[in-house]
């Protein structure tokens, strides 16, 4: 139930970010200055922390989505549904912790 709610919430969040992300990238067609200006916003430490939150949402949505696919298509999926849920948390941490260390040290190291 809660994994389903979190999947929807993170999905909507990613949808709205994608909309903003395509618009900001479109500024490369305006001028290098316009694009570099908007990119300087992403390098702000406050926005840098929000980016880590966004990546957490993407990683959760990705691995929980793979869990859904395994339950739907793998014959043993429903039997191992509990282990798969723990797997989502484990793989999430495996990816997110190194990312957060690397990204936040770049954001705050400048």
């Amino acid at each position: 139930m809660w994994s389903w709610v979190a999947h929807r919430v993170t999905g909507v969040l990613i949808f709205f970010f994608l909309f903003a992300h395509v618009l900001d990238t479109a500024l490369v067609r305006v001028s290098p200055e316009a694009y570099n200006d908007i990119m300087s916003t992403y390098k702000n430490p406050v926005v840098g922390v929000l980016e880590a939150g966004l990546v957490a949402a993407v990683l959760y949505h990705a691995f929980n989505g793979l869990r859904v696919v395994l339950i739907d298509f793998w014959s043993q999926g429903p039997r191992y549904q509990r282990q798969l849920s723990y797997g989502v948390v484990g793989v999430f941490l495996l990816f997110f912790i190194p990312f957060a260390i690397r990204h936040l040290s770049i954001v705050f190291g400048h």
């Binding site: 694009y35 570099n36 990119m39 390098k43 990312f99 690397r102 770049i106």
Partner: peptide
């Protein structure tokens, strides 16, 4: 975001 200089390297170039 992880290779090179991460977000700080992202610009027009």
């Amino acid at each position: 975001l992880m290779l090179g200089d991460g977000i700080h390297a992202v610009d027009f170039a």
